[in-house]
Structures are given as C-alpha cells and as structure tokens.
Simulated scan of single mutants.
Amino acid sequence: MEYISGILLFLLLVVLLSSFVTVKQGTIAVVTVFGKYRRQLPPGLNFKIPLIEQIHARISVQNRSVELSFQAVTQDQANVYFKAMLLYSVLDQNEETIKNVAFKFVDQNNLMQALIRTIEGSIRAYVATQKQANVLAQRNEIVEHVKHQIDPVLETWGYHLQDLQLNDITFDEEIMRSMSRVVASNNLKAAAENEGQALLITKTKGAEADGNAIKIAATAEREAAQLRGQGIALFREEVAKGMTNAAQEMQQANLDTSVILFTMWTEAIKQFAEYSEGNVIFLDGSTDGMNNTMKQLMAMQLNKQAEPKKS
C-alpha cells in the first residue's frame, strides 16, 4: 500500500511540475491542445494544463541574420557573383502573426530555404534586366527592389525584411580585368584632359604676360621717343635763338655774319676729329672747297631769314 502511495505521489509531483512553463525573454511559446492552436505564452513563468496543453513551438521575436552566396546573369550574359547578409525578424507579436510563423512551414529549415530562394530569385530577376556595367552602381536599387518584392510575401509568413546588405559583387576574372582596363583608360583620359587644360591656361597666361610686356615696352618706347623729340626740338630752338642773337649783335657791330658760319664749320671739324672713333670723313680742305661750303651755308642762312618775311 505504501508502495502504491509513493508511485501516486511521484506521478502527482511530475504532473504538477509539468504544469509550469518557463519562456525566455525575446521568445513566445505557442500552445496547442490535441494539435490545434490554443494560445501563446509570454516570457516568464506560465501555467498550462498538464497532459492536455502542449508547447508546439518557441518562436524568437529577435532579429536573425543569414549569409547568402549565389550567382546571377546580366542582360549581356555576364556572370555576377553576390555575397549578401540578410537581416529579418518576426513582423510583430499579434496573435495572427505568431500563428503564421508557427504553422506556415513544417520547420525552420523549410522557412530558411524558402526565404533564401525567394530573395535570390528576386535579385536574379532584377539583374537579368541590367547590363554588367550598371550592376556595381546599383546596389541601392537592387536592395530597394528586393524589399519591394519580398516584404509582401514575408508578411504573409509573419516575417519582415529588416535589411539586405550586398557585401560583395564580383564578375568573372576576364570581365574584372577588362573593367580594370576601362577604369585605367578613363583615368588616363581624365589626366590628359586636366594636363591639356593646365597647359592651355599656362600658355594663355604666358601670352597675356608677353602681350602686356610688349604693350608696356611700346608705351615706354613711345614716351622715350617723344621725350627725345622734345629734347631735339628744344636744342634746335635754343641754337636758333643763340645764332639769331649773335647775328643781331654782329650786324650792330658792322661785322660780317658769315663769321658765325665759319665758326660753326671749324667747330664741326673739331668735333669730327675728337669723337669720330676711327670713322673716316672726307672733307674738301681747299680754299675753293671752303668758299663753296661757306657760300652754301650763307645761302641756307639767307633762306632761313627770308622764310618769316614770306609768311
């Protein structure tokens, strides 16, 4: 009798202990009765009807990630290799959402297979409409396309796509080499254009500087020529004034004005002798030659004196 009582007490203790269920934080337990959904248990210590209510599944509402690695083909038949990271989670903690998560798929492996294949198919469909030269620049467009296409499907499963990161996009080795050559040639082209622009600017600035230098030199030369001309004119004016005064004084003294011309003649010969620096000047030193020269000078003087009277 005591033996039977011990067995009954043990069974009662087991049943009592099985009536309490502990659910971890970030997890929701789904309870079924004879295989049918009954209710869900929140995190913490919960009570269930022993032997009748069963824990069908424990669903994590935390974010989950999975690595993807697959291949796609572009519109121009180039192979593209993707490595991506998928971040997803349960849509919310509503009862209908939890029921979809718990009963849509047989197990977690079937869910992951469907999720991965769906995302890969969406990316392959998008890449098939693009040329390989555009794929690298369309990371954001690919992600937005996948989210737009996949989110409605995942919501029916009770999940939400948090993020999709395309960590690596590569091509066949031959295509990568050709792309590298294209980039290198574009860089060389840009460098040549920059050098050409720099050379053009240098040449233009140099031409402007030369033009300004020529203008400055021409202006200086013109001013110098004006000053030289003014100086010669002043010199001639002063000479004329001096000769006029000398001629007037000699006339008042009843002296022949040809003496002035003779003096100028002798002064000129003296200057030739002192400052000729080896140059040879032929002068007629005979009496007739000097008389002819004096007559020519006197005739020039008379013409000069007659000009004011004519005016």
Rank of each mutant, 00 (worst) to 15 (best):
M1Q: 10
Y3K: 14
I7M: 06
L8V: 05
F10A: 14
L11R: 07
L12R: 13
L13H: 02
V15T: 10
L16F: 04
L17M: 13
S18M: 13
S18F: 05
F20W: 08
T22I: 10
V23D: 00
Q25C: 11
G26K: 11
T27G: 01
I28P: 02
A29H: 00
V30P: 02
V33I: 12
F34R: 07
Y37C: 00
R38K: 15
L41C: 05
K48R: 08
L51D: 02
E53Q: 14
A57C: 03
R58A: 06
V66R: 11
V66A: 10
F70R: 03
Q71S: 08
Q71A: 03
A72T: 08
Q75E: 05
D76Y: 02
A78G: 09
V80P: 02
V80I: 09
M85Y: 03
L86E: 01
Y88P: 03
L91W: 00
Q93D: 08
N94T: 11
N94C: 06
I98A: 02
N100Y: 00
K104F: 05
K104D: 02
K104G: 02
F105H: 10
N109Y: 07
L111Y: 08
M112P: 06
A114T: 05
L115W: 04
R117Q: 14
R117H: 07
I119P: 01
E120V: 06
S122V: 01
V127W: 01
Q132M: 09
A133D: 12
N134C: 08
A137T: 12
I142K: 07
E144R: 15
H145L: 03
V146Y: 06
V146I: 04
V146R: 00
H148L: 13
I150R: 13
D151A: 10
P152Y: 05
L154I: 07
T156C: 05
G158W: 02
H160M: 11
H160W: 06
Q162N: 14
Q165T: 11
T170R: 09
I175D: 03
S178Q: 11
R181H: 09
R181G: 03
A184P: 00
S185M: 15
N187V: 00
L188A: 11
K189M: 15
E193F: 00
G196S: 14
G196H: 03
Q197K: 15
Q197P: 00
A198M: 11
T202W: 10
T202A: 15
K205W: 10
A207Q: 13
G211K: 11
A213K: 13
T219D: 12
T219E: 15
E221I: 15
E221M: 07
E223R: 12
A224P: 02
A224E: 08
A225F: 09
Q226M: 14
R228Y: 04
R228S: 05
L234S: 13
E237Q: 12
V239T: 13
V239G: 04
A240Q: 05
K241R: 08
K241Y: 12
Q248H: 14
Q248T: 12
Q248A: 08
E249R: 04
M250I: 09
M250D: 00
Q252V: 08
N254W: 00
D256K: 15
I260Y: 01
F262Y: 09
M264P: 01
M264W: 11
M264E: 15
E267D: 12
Q271Y: 05
E277G: 03
E277I: 01
G278N: 08
F282V: 15
L283D: 01
D284Y: 00
S286K: 06
N292K: 13
N292T: 14
L297W: 04
L297Y: 06
Q301F: 03
